[in-house]
Design a binder for these strands. Structure first.
Lengths: 345, 345
DNA sequence: TAGAGCCTGGACAACGTTGTCATATGCGAG
DNA sequence: CTCGCATATGACAACGTTGTCCAGGCTCTA
């Protein structure tokens, strides 16, 4: 049998390698490498010959091989809950910009708020040897990351802290923001105020509920169980929760919505009510100002959140950063009308 | 000098390799590989020893090396205009889901509507040897991709066709959608209708303008130059454009907005006007139904766009697909009030 | 008990690149 | 003219994994 076909066929569809370029240009392998990487020590004439061979063959350096040799992949991973959520768009864009400034690419994945899927994704990224990870955690136990961090994978958590490990984290002041928002409602005369938030497993949900309770307690208002609804996220259940607290035995005159998705659904429900219900939502969203009334929100800056996290990530990689830190960014109350409605009962 | 430190120090922070695991477990290298990959032919006892060594050392397979050997990276690239744009969130999520179903990771980047940056990104992804690319093109010349495609990189363009090369493309029916939208306005009595769209470099912008013109021509309405504004995207200029066509010598009674960002800005402008101006926008957006009046839109399904493109990508990789095709998805007119307002002049 | 056949395990090369080091070439100075 | 030095170039190993192939030990049967 003559010279069996050793090429695994349809690998990269038989891409040319530096060796091929070298052969065609009649130079050594290393010379091609020098040209490709712009290293010094190549005659203009040689460089031209190599460049011609590169163009003729359509050669492109295989970064996988390069990574293997050099040890850094110049890529970072971003794991978030859902790329389609408008809150994460700007965040992920901000992370991308910082990565780009450092010559790194961004690999990202959605955990769909599922801890197992988060872990699976994170570990897949580690196997790819990303230089660092920005994680918006779904789970509450991240000990599985310990070997990776020890092995040098820079890691920053965003929006929610890591569970059971000591790691950098950048978050918004959920507690303070919620407290401010609810206090705002109270200052406009409300006493029966509802709270609709995310699952208690999620740190921000807990913190915001804590802020709600604190504000109520500060005002000396006893909170009724029927006013609080946790763990509802999907529109159908949020709707039901809202309707229940609006029609219960001691119906609320205002609602504090725990995140952007909840807010949007509550807006829909309130639009159908005959009496005017006040509303303050956590997270700003587009067009909030154009609704009737405009929606008062506790805004957090998703882009800054992302940028800060990514900055810290690359500072970890520089070696500039030593100890993990917890950074809390302030929130901002934006009044637009819905939060300033008086109680109607 | 004794045994110089050969480890390049701070590579992967000295991660354990299969060799280390093998040494610790007292087995051969290939046996470890077998265990890691769940290949048959390993005694339960041996497997246990290997697994223990893996856990003890915190070993994780280096996929970079694996890729080098196997030829497939199990990752695909997505290049779009801006991750933060709400239109691209669902699209990118859909692509991710399909990738995930095929065991692939998603690397994505924003071109910021800059052709050079698009090319830079795409080529960086090719150097990483992504298996395939989903591109929402910013530029109009993609001949730079020819060697890559020839080399086997699966490629699908979305939302806009590729320039000067023959490639798969999945898009919405911009022409038909715009035509329908404008016809809808005409059927409600409008004759002086404005059009505000994106740069003429962008395919969708041209197509939508063409649809606008066709609808007007069908109705026998001569179009005035002052009614059309192309190339404006940023809110400030959209606002000026809208105001100009509302106050010109023959002021429009309705506006057709060429994309979601334009629509949102126009909504703001119209909210400030004393007379009621009709509006139909291309692209649906959240809360469009809650505005006063609800915004009538020509909706395209971003998720389906992304899913279709990713499906085709993997079918290219399967070898199921041969010839490039152009797939056009239908749009849907959603009436909500703003498009049904009568002319007020 | 010997031979055949199967199963487990390991040695080795290869993937495409870069770092190290050696060699060749040319040029200026003595 | 020769030596020494700087500069251009290339040979080779290594990165960590997987595919190929072979060896050794076992079981089963004749």
């Amino acid at each position: 049998m003559p010279e069996t076909a050793r090429r695994p066929e349809n690998r990269y569809g038989n891409r040319p390698t530096m060796k091929d370029v070298a052969a065609r240009a009649g130079v050594g392998l290393k010379t091609v490498s020098r040209v490709v990487n712009g290293e010094p020590g190549v005659t203009p004439d040689t460089e031209r010959r190599v460049q011609e061979a590169i163009d003729a063959l359509g050669f492109r350096r295989n970064d996988s091989a390069r990574v293997l040799r050099k040890g850094r992949t110049a890529s970072i991973g971003l794991v978030l809950e859902d790329l389609a959520d408008p809150f994460y768009g700007p965040l992920s864009r901000a992370v991308e910009e910082v990565a780009r400034a450092h010559g790194a690419l961004l690999i990202n994945g959605s955990s769909a708020e599922d801890p197992d899927r988060e872990q699976e994704l994170v570990l897949a990224l580690c196997a790819r040897r990303v230089d660092g990870l920005v994680v918006i955690p779904a789970g509450d136990d991240h000990r599985y990351l310990e070997p990776e961090i020890k092995a040098g994978v820079a890691t920053v958590f965003v929006d929610r802290p890591a569970g059971k490990i000591d790691a950098d984290v950048v978050l918004s002041n959920s507690y303070g923001g919620a407290r401010d928002g609810v206090t705002h409602l109270i200052s406009h005369g409300h006493r029966r105020i509802g709270f609709i938030g995310d699952m208690p497993r999620i740190h921000t949900a807990v913190e915001r509920l804590r802020g709600y309770r604190a504000a109520m307690e500060d005002a000396g208002i006893p909170v009724e169980d029927a006013w609080m609804s946790l763990g509802v996220t999907d529109p159908v259940r949020v709707r039901r929760a809202a309707e229940e607290m609006l029609t219960g035995p001691s119906p609320v005159t205002a609602i504090f919505a725990g995140n952007n998705r909840v807010t949007v659904t509550v807006v829909r429900v309130l639009a159908e009510q005959s009496r005017r219900i006040a509303l303050v939502g956590f997270d700003d969203f587009e067009l909030a100002d154009l609704l009737q009334p405009g929606v008062t929100v506790v805004a957090q800056d998703a882009a800054t959140l992302g940028r800060t996290a990514a900055d810290r990530l690359f500072r970890q990689l520089d070696g500039t950063l030593i100890a993990p830190e917890r950074i809390e960014l302030p929130t901002r109350l934006i009044t637009r009308g819905s939060g300033e409605l008086p109680p109607s009962d």
